[in-house]
Design a binder for these strands. Sequence first.
DNA 1: TGATATATTGAATATAGGTTCAGTGAATGA
DNA 2: TCATTCACTGAACCTATATTCAATATATCA
Lengths: 192, 192
Amino acid sequence: MTRKEQKEMRQKQIMFKALELFVTKGFTETKISDIAEALGISVGLLFHYYESKEKLCLELVKMGVEGTKMSENAQFDDPLQYFEKTLDGLLRAASEQPWICQMFVLMAQAQRAGMPEEIRSLALTVDQIRFSAGIIEQGQKLGCIRDGDPLALSNAFWCSVQGIMEYHAAVPEMPLPETRWIIDILRKDQKS
Amino acid sequence: MTRKEQKEMRQKQIMFKALELFVTKGFTETKISDIAEALGISVGLLFHYYESKEKLCLELVKMGVEGTKMSENAQFDDPLQYFEKTLDGLLRAASEQPWICQMFVLMAQAQRAGMPEEIRSLALTVDQIRFSAGIIEQGQKLGCIRDGDPLALSNAFWCSVQGIMEYHAAVPEMPLPETRWIIDILRKDQKS
DNA sequence: TGATATATTGAATATAGGTTCAGTGAATGA
DNA sequence: TCATTCACTGAACCTATATTCAATATATCA
């Protein structure tokens, strides 16, 4: 293994363990030494790769922001289908790769007051709710999404997803819901 | 005002401000001095009323546990109606009294790893999800709640509520969803 | 009114935990 | 092979903040 490969591997290792701990214990509650210990490396080595706990978290949030922007580019015919596809993908991913759902949770944590300002403002650049409200409006015109304030509907949907991801990050053994249960928050005429 | 009244008022004052800050900033991220400053009192006074930050939080969690047990005693005819009544009450309360929704959020925080053990174990004594799963099972037999793993359905419902409360605690100006949108996670045949 | 109890303060203390750094050993490459 | 670079260590350092405490002000009550 070349030096470069080794370096990238270590960085990845550190990031994913940090993500796991930040999400299960919380950012401030996670000690740098917790991460180091969990990986069986020294505290000093961690600072060799990341100049601070804050920068490490920032790196994770950057990753999350990119992931979100990505998903906003998904193509769809039917607006309701957009949510179906997105949610189905998320739930499938969450059940297989813990880090996807953890990432989801981290992004919410990062938006809270009390987070380092640089992290917080970056996290606040994603606004899934407002973005989806536009698609919901389309769906309402087409008659596949129920009536009501699009922003409130979008909020209801994404908050539900958020809650589910959060709980699954903490208690992975709890069975995840089926996509269509959550989609029915938005669907106009149930019974498919 | 008598001494006793004054004492109770101060304690309430401190508890509610602490709740607000614990929820918006996080437990560890909230400094004792933040609470004191926000109330215009000294740090020392806070310790006169609560022997530690941990005990203060514990008091809040106790309050939350009692509230939850209370709501479990609600009477109902129709299982679906139980959820409707409960959620409607919660949403109504959340929009009027911030602390109710904050309390909801605190309970989730308190259950996380990384919290002081005494707080965590107390918070873990409430198990809304498992409790509601029983009611969901009844509803399925009666045909008013959709088929599927009752535990997973209960999880979906309460996680959604959790997510909504959490977001509303952070961004109160976002309009809350309507009860029936969330109830439709559980409802068997939509279109009322 | 005086004596006691309680509310209140803020400076001093203790400690946890993020960060630094001087040093060791192993890989790389000329 | 030798020199250089980089991975890696863990103890020392430093700061932020929970907690303590001695002192003061105010209320209660006999």
